[in-house]
Design a protein around this nucleic acid. Sequence first.
DNA 1: CTGTTAGCGCATTCAT
DNA 2: ATGAATGCGCTAACAG
Lengths: 336, 336
Amino acid sequence: MPRQQGASPSSTKAATLHDVARVAGVSLITASRALTKPSLVSDTTIERVQAAVQATGYIPNLLAGSLKSSRSRLIAGLVPALSVAQFLPTLQALTDVLDAAGYQLMLGQMRYDNSRQDALLNAMISRRVDGIVVTGLIGSEAVRRQVGQLGIPVVETWDLPENPTDMVVGFSHTAVGRAVAAYLVGKGYGRIGLATGDDHRAQLRRQGLLAGLGREVPTATVPAPSSLALGRRALGELLQQDPALRAVACSADQLAQGVVVEALARGLRVPEDLAVCGFGNADFSAHTVPTLTTVRVDGAAIGRRAGEMILARCRGETVPDRIVDVGFAIAQRESA
Amino acid sequence: MPRQQGASPSSTKAATLHDVARVAGVSLITASRALTKPSLVSDTTIERVQAAVQATGYIPNLLAGSLKSSRSRLIAGLVPALSVAQFLPTLQALTDVLDAAGYQLMLGQMRYDNSRQDALLNAMISRRVDGIVVTGLIGSEAVRRQVGQLGIPVVETWDLPENPTDMVVGFSHTAVGRAVAAYLVGKGYGRIGLATGDDHRAQLRRQGLLAGLGREVPTATVPAPSSLALGRRALGELLQQDPALRAVACSADQLAQGVVVEALARGLRVPEDLAVCGFGNADFSAHTVPTLTTVRVDGAAIGRRAGEMILARCRGETVPDRIVDVGFAIAQRESA
DNA sequence: CTGTTAGCGCATTCAT
DNA sequence: ATGAATGCGCTAACAG
């Protein structure tokens, strides 16, 4: 018995707070307070209002409440693309933190494109989001100014810029690059190559790696999002540049996995003939053969922390640490 | 020079449409129409209004517009969890389709928990979402009734129930199970095992597989989300149940990858000693060694189609095909 | 093509 | 502890 398409609600129109108040025999505002600020209302009226809510099937209209109070309880969550596995734990943790506080996340995909970032931010601001969490940085100077003027709290994540738009939760990518360089050199690998994505942060890690090594290295650059297939291709390119390559640093575990697969397919042993280091500590990295040496980053912690900072600012609190470094750690495993 | 935290906008309050109208020298409603229904307004006034928008830095308040028009241009997108890689292409395509039409996606994680599903739906309805897209089915009978009464369009996806809440875009999981059974039997594999997730859809595929085979099979059930590690564990369990196992059907490519890794680690050749079939055609499946035989499903098409159906209903159109079967195909590769 | 009027449903401000 | 009035910013419905 399919319901009538596009029809208005089957019977009468939806109940409003007005109806609840009438049924409960109290004024509009008392009903409102009973539901949102129970401490200001007597227990008996709370009960009567709640009974009226049940009776009427009342569902509050947050649009109206938001308009009046100028607080939408909506947070914008911006990612380059949902397919970037890297950011999923962050988004997941963020959504959970917000949900627990009665906030919802509006999702936006920026597509590594500044003009789209502009349009998206405008759409979010039009909805009067109470805060913005962006994975990566806000690239558009115009947008930075705009959110600054409007006083919208912003948390940039997964990076650690010197001049954040507002707040930031992340870590130093150049430090990661240096750490990986030091690790590989410490293991005695001389001929090192790099398989890297083309995004901003991967390039920072590249710079750190080169600085740590003190020289250029063979490099294969692949487009986002990183994948096993791209890793295989990258190793092919790197071996053309240096057939005697002994180690490959990768900008993502997906790439590292591909490099390993390609190496094994070419009859190279990992790590005896070729060492491989990834980045991100993906869920599979501890369980491949060989297990993947990688850089561990707590993406969920980034999301949680970002959510808490945004919520604190939404409550009007001052956040003492506007720049939070969650750090990273090299996870030593078999592949390097 | 950090901006003042929690401060109100740096200077005066934000411009409203009222200000725009005043600056442009037209009435409020004309300014509104110039921005949202330009066809009803003369070109010269459009220009003047747009100039006024620039001059005032006006950003529309969709909260107010939505309240008045009862159309929020907000769509709820519900997934069990963001970590279920399966659904990402669907969400990504859905977000793109909605964005192009000026709609935004509000993300919700249901956590395989009916009570949370209830609470989440309520939060979404409170915000007067214009539609709901859920990956999987709406489990709560109360919620189904509620959205039905409110006349909110709903698209359930990735399944093909006989009685959808409203609309559905998916495919038959029992048919997938039968197809996989037929494929493996056709290849001559006798002793077949199953590594499967514990979610509803995976169980439907299991039923199809068993029906196709006409008998029970050794089964290892793992919790969501599927991963390489769980696949390795599952193969261990299956080999305990039947050391002479010749083939394993998996409910996800992540599991299949783990089964392959574990098989190789135990000195089994794939597919000579053990054939493996996955599900979902993940991005890596065509590039592993050996490449993974799997079931191809067009997740992006599901998201696109779902978005189009929701948007059509938001425009008041009648959707002729309320039940859309996007089908599936077995991708024959090396592992089986 | 343009304008006037009248709210959408709720929360803030003041009163009692 | 409760209530009356007011308006958040915008758009639908009618005029002209």
